[in-house]
Write a protein that binds this DNA or RNA. Sequence first.
DNA 1: GGTAACTGGGTTTTT
DNA 2: CCCAGTTACC
Length: 675
Amino acid sequence: MFDHGWDHGLDDNQLAAAAHGDGPLVILAGAGTGKTRTLTARVASLVDRGVPPERILLLTFTRRAADDMVARAAAMCTRPDAGRRLQGGTFHAVAHDLVSRNTEALGLPLAVSVLDRSDSTDVMDFLRHDHQLDDTDVRYPKASTLVDIYSRSVSTGRPARQLIATEFGWVEPHLEQVIAILRAYVMRKRERGLIDFDDLLLAWRSLLADPLLGPEIAGRWDHVLVDEYQDVNQTQVDIVHALRPTGAGLTVVGDDAQAVYAFRGSDSAHLTGLTSSLAGVTVLRLERNFRSRQRLLDLANAVRPTSGEHRLTLHSDRPGGRRARLVRCHDAAAEARAVADAVLTAAQDGRPLRDQAVLMRTGHHSDLLEIELTGRGVPFVKFGGLKFLEAAHVKDFVAAVRLLDNQLDEVAWYRLLRLHDGIGPARARALLEILGTAQMPESAAPIDIDAQAIAAAPAISRTSLALTLATLGAARERRGIGDRAAGCLALLRPLLTARYPDAVVRIADLDRLVSAAESAPDLGAFVAELTLDPPASTGDLAGPPHLDDDYLVLSTVHSAKGLEWPVVHVIHLVDGAFPSDMALTSSAGLVEEQRLFYVAVTRAEDELSLYAPLRMPHHRHARDDKHSFAPVSRFIDEEAMVNLDVEQLSPPRPAPVRIGVPARVALPTLDDLWA
DNA sequence: GGTAACTGGGTTTTT
DNA sequence: CCCAGTTACC
């Protein structure tokens, strides 16, 4: 074999995938089987075969995965400029780029604002109000439920009526009103230049369906490679199909047992279906695992949901190892202590904190653990759960920036207006009628509009509102990105200071955001990108200064997908927590939880500990009988149990009971205190 | 009467 | 952080 660089260290199956020709290729890759390595090697091999790098498109679901893959592929290529020319990104980022360049063709205003989920909920709330669905005497579906229905409907291609009938039964009494609101939601966004996450994909699909633009866009790429294909929804399937209609030049990688995004419209049937529906498809399997010790894979294979023809069985390159531990704890507090003990013990045994991770079903499952870790001085970083962007002040800043370009952005106005004393939901809505209405750039002077709004505002808010509008107007006149961003911060400074007790910290956050924005090519794009891919913590923005510090990672299983650590702790393995009580009612939900558990288990390289608290504050069902292994976790059946070492932590010793006369304790009097 | 501001209890997962 | 319920203001 010639040494191309990209084929170095690949096994036969990986090599077959990397060197595969132009026909459609489906790679079924189990966890830890070198999927990324294979995909990047394939990219490098294509480039070596003479495919121009810019004619290769790598699609992923997270920007981290996209950046990672482009960088690694570039490193394998013999062409020095490949990294710059390779096209890669998340579905949503690529879509956003295309949408921004084609707003006119799409019939959108020149400037569009990207809505995250909570922005979408705000829009839905306006409509709920307009349609009088916010009366308190009848329980109408909440705005967030409406967003759920809308999103699931468009991303799966199922009509809302059908979706409501099968999965949102409690909404049916208001079916007609809900349908009317969903229609209005589409119109409202279009009028105001607002696009949500689903719209980005829908717009890309529409562009591809256009007789003129479609072929031009699809024609930009000869090869399309899609990572994590088990997580695509119907819109994404349509996009991929429009990009590579015959399947030639298409490579997809995935593992149906790791499909964990059904709640956002994904369906792993899209992956499994491809293996039979695509003419001339080559299906390759990667089952050789380079990550985990065999003992851990035995457990992984036993808990992996079976999936008929696409059964994959992982076998390790790294035999032996320790069996996973199942630690049964008395309650969540005992669990937190046990995890902290284990983390510190491992650290003493030469596993730095950075080699360990604690995984959980939902963000707040680590609440007690975080207190415990803080108390013991163990540094940690948390992924998943509340994001930096969800902090109120960051959303305020994003709103201000969006208003620079898009004055029709009512969601942004609504947010900003309510920061003023004396302006609540109702007054903000009234002011929106004035401020958020379209004025053509050349028509009525904006000053008049501002004056009108100030006059309409309650007296107490007029001074600060006038200042806000003036600062915003001034920032709009600026051209430099740093100046514009600084203007937005200047606008917020008095408002945040008045509103939040910890305003100093929050403003310092925004200072960092402003300096990060300065190096961006365009402020609007910077904010849109921030929305599409929010940094997990403020630390992310400042670059990696604490990279040489040692810290423990706490993460939701969803956010841990694709990552690995030598030592992994999975906490809260108890019905109602993991699996989530939201999923307990449907079998589809339970299978998804099982896949999520499989993802968690397969993150570990050397050591895996599973923690099962027996008593949870809100769950009385966990029984205390210490010797029965039956209700350990519904994820672990008898076959899987064989691969576990079970440890039972003794319950905490009850506080000693004192019998006798209670001591008399005198509370201090004022005179005592002043003495 | 209509709002804003405050209080207390609860929270799935994410592009 | 969001929501519902309550109080207090104009």
